Simulated scan of single mutants.
Amino acid sequence: MLTPKNHPADAYRRVEVDARVEGADGIGLTRIYLEHALDELDRASRAHHRGDRIVMSDALTRAANGIAGLGLGVSDDNPMREPLQHLYGSAETAVRASITQFRDDVITRVRYDLRDILALF
């Protein structure tokens, strides 16, 4: 049985992200992390609705890790540093909580917040 850790689609996703990360600047990396987190939230939602807890958990973990990376990557000289770090921290916490108790409304709200930030780029 293929698990999320050794599924071919997962390998392609990792290669795609790695290829995009290589050579990206700070804004480019932020965009990549936002897109990756959104993709993983969408994947988690689809997995939840079809009852696949393994894929759902894996996707939520990846999304939460990406969101954590966004929080760590906010530049010290960014005037929006504190609000962004608060938003990313809250989003990460909400996504991690959804691993054990999935809530569509919470994931939808996190998705909207991340899409709003992505739209600024």
Rank of each mutant, 00 (worst) to 15 (best):
77 D>W: 07
42 D>S: 15
73 G>M: 09
33 Y>P: 06
49 H>R: 12
112 Y>Q: 14
6 N>L: 05
53 R>I: 15
91 A>E: 01
37 A>P: 08
51 G>P: 14
12 Y>W: 12
69 G>Y: 00
74 V>S: 06
67 I>K: 01
25 D>C: 10
98 S>F: 02
71 G>Y: 05
120 L>F: 10
6 N>Q: 06
28 G>Q: 04
7 H>K: 08
25 D>P: 05
26 G>W: 00
118 L>I: 02
76 D>K: 14
102 F>E: 00
48 H>Y: 06
40 E>H: 04
36 H>M: 14
112 Y>F: 14
53 R>V: 15
80 M>Y: 13
7 H>C: 03
112 Y>L: 08
3 T>I: 02
10 D>W: 13
101 Q>I: 11
96 R>E: 07
24 A>W: 02
98 S>E: 06
115 R>H: 08
78 N>L: 09
105 D>H: 05
11 A>I: 11
68 A>C: 05
41 L>F: 04
67 I>W: 00
32 I>F: 00
10 D>L: 12
53 R>C: 15
50 R>E: 08
67 I>V: 07
73 G>E: 03
78 N>M: 00
57 S>Y: 03
2 L>F: 13
110 V>A: 05
110 V>I: 11
55 V>H: 03
2 L>W: 10
57 S>A: 14
91 A>F: 06
109 R>Y: 10
117 I>K: 06
44 A>R: 04
38 L>Q: 06
23 G>V: 09
51 G>F: 08
56 M>E: 12
97 A>C: 10
5 K>A: 14
107 I>K: 13
35 E>P: 01
121 F>V: 12
83 P>G: 00
80 M>T: 09
